[in-house]
């Protein structure tokens, strides 16, 4: 069974995010970048399937700039067999990414696609669901457990108020939640080997993916700085303030 796994290059979660002074976007110049943490969990799950003898090949896929090669190398250092970079200098919208994966899924004959449930930069949480719709295949989102049995994958999903387990016929799409696994550290010899693993670069044109713009980014602003609190004299005063000032009740 071939497994496709999504890898997105995002700002490192340890880095303090700065907004560009003209509010057009987040400032990413000279910022440390990393694999999106949810994608790292997806990579880990795919490697575990390979180690368990279930997956035969793990292919890491990224849609992004040529710099995303770094994250694909990391995925290969962790254990992915090869990588495909679909190169674009523009920010790819979720639908474009979903179409790309749909095409690659068909081309590669992948039976399982594991994606992060969302990326920590734009927090869209859309690609997995869109991919399922485009390919008309079942989806198991927010996975906290994945187990593959003959022709099926059972996915335990984290939902409000509990867990729901769904059984999906393969091929299927799974998106990962935080508690699915704890990603390993790359081993030094594997980092060296990753340099020699195949990394193929493609374009949307190569794949026949039509890029349409549906989303326009108007502006990006940093969250308002936190204001100091006030002490209230009574519960009544608190309720008053919540009603009149905060306007939340």
């Amino acid at each position: 069974m071939k497994v496709l796994v999504g890898v997105k290059r995002v700002i490192d979660y340890n880095v303090k995010v700065r907004v560009k002074s003209d509010n057009t976007d987040v400032d990413l110049s000279n910022t440390k970048m990393a694999i999106n943490p949810f994608c790292e969990i997806a990579v880990e799950e795919a490697i575990r399937l390979k180690e368990a003898g279930i997956a035969t090949e793990v292919i890491a896929v990224s849609v992004g700039s040529s710099a995303s090669q770094e994250q694909l190398r990391t995925a290969m250092a962790l254990g992915a067999d090869r990588a495909i970079l679909v190169e674009t200098e523009d920010t790819a919208e979720p639908l474009t990414v979903a179409k790309t994966f749909a095409k690659l899924m068909a081309d590669e004959g992948a039976e399982l696609v594991i994606l992060g449930k969302q990326s920590i930069d734009s927090d869209n949480n859309q690609v997995g669901q869109m991919l399922a719709a485009l390919t008309k295949r079942p989806q198991g989102t927010f996975a906290s457990n994945v187990s593959v049995e003959a022709g099926h994958v059972a996915v335990t999903r984290e939902i409000d108020g509990g867990l729901r387990t769904v059984k999906l016929a393969l091929p299927a799409i799974v998106t990962t939640d935080l508690r699915l696994n704890e990603p390993r550290f790359a081993k030094l010899p594997d980092i060296m080997k990753a340099k020699r693993k195949p990394l193929e670069t493609k374009t949307f044109a190569d794949l026949g993916v039509e890029v349409k713009q549906h989303i326009q980014l108007d502006k990006v602003e940093a969250p308002a700085a936190r204001q100091g609190g006030v002490k209230v004299g009574s519960v009544d005063e608190l309720i008053q303030k919540l009603k009149d000032e905060a306007k939340v009740i």
């Binding site: 190398r73 990391t74 250092a77 550290f185 790359a186 030094l188 980092i191 060296m192 340099k195």
Partner: peptide, 22 residues
């Protein structure tokens, strides 16, 4: 030739995770 700056950066990055995490 096989040990260029790209490799150095990849290794520094992975080592930093181990140093901070473990």
């Amino acid at each position: 030739q096989d040990f260029d700056l790209d490799l150095a950066n990849a290794i520094i990055d992975e080592a930093s995770k181990f140093a901070s995490g473990v």
